[in-house]
Design a protein around this nucleic acid. Structure first.
Length: 319
RNA sequence: GGCGACUUAGCCAAGUGGUAAGGCACGGGACUGCAACUCCCUGAGCAUCGGUUCAAAUCCGGUAGUCGCCU
């Protein structure tokens, strides 16, 4: 019998957190955050991180586990998430993956295999400078020689992806297209529900705008200032987060504060749109359109009923 | 009331006789170790009516709207 896994995701600001607590309590679960930014300490306001008092005693994993100057990536996420899941299962509880980073969810849900090798930072930098100096086409030409298949799916201008494909080839001697091909065939080792919470686009965009204003009132600028005083620079992975890079620009005088906040709103809306695109493409998802439920409670009740297999699983296991 | 300027896609904006640059937004899409990243695709016939011309967004005139100045 496959082990159960509940996933709750959706675009930013849709209201995942509130639902996740109700679900965790009803299913006797623990929450694993699937969020690339909430892993960082000292970044609370801009990431809309759940507050300890909002957790209502539900255990949360993968929040506040790194300092802002530490690197993070999907392979690490997967490793930590899987470790947390083992702990949760061993306690006889159900893991609930909650967060908006679709890519991360995929890595756990399908147990994608990543190569053993570490990221080769110096090689990446070398390739990036090459692209900058001689043009993106130059890199693309290099990729054509070693991995023509990838050239079908990666656009020449997408330097980041071209670099990764080249890096992968250098490390493994194998084209990444072949690796992707095999990983795409994988079926999930879990018995799962993949919920995507959604909301009318116009309403969501309004909520995003409001939430950014709330962040401003809550002291986002101060939070970023404090991070800069600690030595955080815009090159760090953490400082690529929405709301951070824009405020840094303003604090460094490259933008004015008012405009920076408008950019945050704009870019957050863009982000939400990209998230929709991602989830629409994922197979086996259950869309939870908020407007189709008369209340939050009804939505929660639906999920609880729909997750009956979780209780079944643990009941059988006890026997 | 008079004089002048302006009027190009949802917004900003090039184009001053030869068949509408570009940017932004919106919408769609890609994505398998930086993913809150990175990247791709997508729209109008030029306020309106009439004239000149082989040909007008571009020239001329009428009308409307906007803005400025004057009385």
């Amino acid at each position: 019998m496959k082990r159960p896994l509940i996933i709750l995701t959706g675009p930013t600001a849709v209201g995942k957190t509130a639902l996740s607590i109700g679900l965790a309590k009803a299913l006797d679960g623990e929450i694993i955050s699937a969020d690339s930014m909430q892993v960082y300490k000292k970044m609370d306001i801009g990431t809309a991180k759940i507050k300890p008092e909002e957790m209502q005693g539900v255990k949360h994993h993968l929040i506040d586990i790194l300092e802002p100057d530490e690197e993070f990536n999907i392979a690490l996420f997967q490793k930590y998430a899987q470790k947390a899941m083992e702990e949760i299962y061993s306690r006889g509880k159900c893991p609930i993956l909650v967060g908006g980073t679709g890519f991360y969810i995929q890595s756990v849900l399908y147990d994608i295999r990543f190569s053993k090798t570490e990221a080769d930072v110096s090689y990446r930098e070398e390739l990036e400078t090459l692209a900058k100096e001689q043009g993106a086409e130059k890199l693309f030409e290099m990729l054509k020689k070693v991995d023509p298949d990838s050239c079908q799916t990666i656009h020449p201008n997408n330097v980041k992806r071209v670099v990764r494909a080249l890096e992968y080839y250098k490390q493994t001697g194998e084209p990444i297209s072949k690796h992707n091909e095999t990983q795409k065939m994988r079926t999930s080792p879990y018995q799962f529900r993949y919920y995507v919470l959604s909301l009318d686009r116009g309403i969501l965009y309004q909520r995003i705008n409001e939430r950014v204003e709330q962040m401003r009132e809550a002291g986002l600028v101060k939070e970023v200032q404090a991070l800069m005083e600690l030595g955080c620079s815009e090159h760090m992975v953490s400082m690529q987060g929405l709301g951070y890079k824009e405020i840094i620009d303003a604090l460094k005088g490259r933008d004015n504060m008012e405009h920076a906040f408008e950019r945050i709103k704009q870019e957050t809306r863009h982000f939400a749109k990209r998230q929709f695109t991602w989830f629409r493409r994922e197979k086996d998802v259950t869309w939870l359109e908020k407007e189709k439920f008369s209340s939050e409670q009804e939505l929660l009740d639906f999920c609880i009923r729909d997750c009956g297999f979780v209780k079944e699983y643990f009941k059988n296991r006890k026997k």
